[in-house]
Design a protein around this nucleic acid. Sequence first.
DNA 1: AATGAATGAGAGTTCATTCAT
DNA 2: TATGAATGAACTCTCATTCAT
Lengths: 181, 181, 181, 181
Amino acid sequence: MAAATRLFAERGYDRTSVQEIVEASGVTKGALYHYFGSKDDLLHEIYGRLLRLQQDRLDTFACADAPVEQRLRDAAADVVVTTIDNLDDAMIFFRSMHQLSPEKQKQVRTERRRYHERFRALVEEGQQHGVFSTATPADLVVDYHFGSVHHLGSWYRPDGPLTPQEVADHLADLLLRALRP
Amino acid sequence: MAAATRLFAERGYDRTSVQEIVEASGVTKGALYHYFGSKDDLLHEIYGRLLRLQQDRLDTFACADAPVEQRLRDAAADVVVTTIDNLDDAMIFFRSMHQLSPEKQKQVRTERRRYHERFRALVEEGQQHGVFSTATPADLVVDYHFGSVHHLGSWYRPDGPLTPQEVADHLADLLLRALRP
Amino acid sequence: MAAATRLFAERGYDRTSVQEIVEASGVTKGALYHYFGSKDDLLHEIYGRLLRLQQDRLDTFACADAPVEQRLRDAAADVVVTTIDNLDDAMIFFRSMHQLSPEKQKQVRTERRRYHERFRALVEEGQQHGVFSTATPADLVVDYHFGSVHHLGSWYRPDGPLTPQEVADHLADLLLRALRP
Amino acid sequence: MAAATRLFAERGYDRTSVQEIVEASGVTKGALYHYFGSKDDLLHEIYGRLLRLQQDRLDTFACADAPVEQRLRDAAADVVVTTIDNLDDAMIFFRSMHQLSPEKQKQVRTERRRYHERFRALVEEGQQHGVFSTATPADLVVDYHFGSVHHLGSWYRPDGPLTPQEVADHLADLLLRALRP
DNA sequence: AATGAATGAGAGTTCATTCAT
DNA sequence: TATGAATGAACTCTCATTCAT
């Protein structure tokens, strides 16, 4: 999975052959297919790993004992940090999701929606308590933020001027500022 | 190109065969290769079309005779509208850019950077005039907004509750609100 | 097709690889797949050739201007001769039919049934005219004869003591003798 | 063996994987290979079972104390009944014999020939006693009948109008009628 | 007696591209 | 300008069999 992750991130899912994966990981094709039913499966497992991680962390932050502004800020920043920390997985996720088989795609989308909705609930909570502006529908706000998260792979470089935490703080700050009443 | 655009958007660049393109468009392989040097070329042309369109429009908005807040708001909204109006092209662009040959990718990235910089200049202009907060580096602000534009293909549906213009207004509004000092 | 026919007859459909076919015939895989959609198709074409040949000949014999005993005898002998003359095709047919895709199998079975029914009509005609015994249902009679035709590949050898015509005469004679009232 | 028999009959020997056999029978690959040396062996065992059964029964009928016409009729009918009763085994036998390894094929053919010769001896006996016509060589007569037996799998259906015994009687009758002087 | 992970060769098929016409 | 047959490398996946445990 590590080899596959690296290769998928490097050249894309379709451009990576099973042959290359087994060569990079030092196993045989037979062994790979003994554990993964298909190339698709491999991709799906990579997704699952990241999805579960982020879902768990979001749950933790959302349920924390703190004002909603703080919880949203923490969650918004955390998704940025974990995305950067797993940038390979994340890029594969965002780019290759639509290359999964239809049924697997549906499954992923369902899980993704759960994540989106948990996040949206935080925004709505703040809007109901009057600490966030209601000028923009909560759904749109969430997509706005997630857009910037998906986009990280396009510009973030580990050797750039900002640490992951700094980027995260900036992006969370932008979100919170945009939500000021 | 119309057929190729539709197919690329539908199933992705790698999953679309030249055979399918020529069948969908009613031409022959030979004819296609007479006009386009390669499948890559076709993709590159589709990019070029959208890139030129958006660059032109950005130039128009940025050079308009209006306060910088207005100019940024208009530009930010416009890129949303033209992206939605050309959602197929845009999705191909965002998803398949990394599947171009390295040299074509470089060329695209160069043009993309010009676009990014034009946009950033607007943000910096506002920051220098004190109408935008300087809390966040202008680069990050631009990436924040572009992130949401790239993300449109993941959630925007023509039959959804919002018109393209409404989405654009909301997203531009979020940007401007985030930039309030 | 000639190379495929020979190889299929020699080692069976499943045991013959596309690689072997293209090597034996001096074409490339690409060329083969340009003309035949699949390995299945190739088999189906071989079937078709023999089926059409035998159907045509049966039609000719069945419609001839002669007493029904003569027409049945001629048809029964002819199917033996053409089967021996195309023993490779025939053996492939009898052995590999069930290895076709379900839909192709259905198509073949439909054509095969037409052939069977044309033959059965001859038997029934003789039975109605009282020149053939009605002790056995016509369907069974036809299957009895076809059984011996299918079986030819299991024992007939070109260098054996009997010519194809002699075999055919004997088998047709057995059929006609069995049908004596 | 029961699972293998069913699967081989259903989809053919080559189309059935060892994996499918072990899954269908609830054993493991290791266990299967502990008892059978190879997939080939499995097929060979299935053959052996039917071959021994039919050989035994033929011996019984051929040595009975009855006129040769009766003995041949009984034997000819019996092979039909036991073939229908073991139609799966029989179909595998007729279709897959040529997929055995050359040496196993030779062995099977030798046993098959013994069976054929025992049957032929009956025909010759009747011919020498003048109760069967000598118009057709005994070998051919036997092949004629065996052909119809092999063919049973192509058309006989348990839910059809005829019971196995009725089919057997009809086919034996056709044989005996064909042999009338 | 039994396991099941691992092998590695080979299966059928697809593909972007070329080129003689 | 346009054809479409031909290429040949690469693709994903399957398989009977082995063997350390």
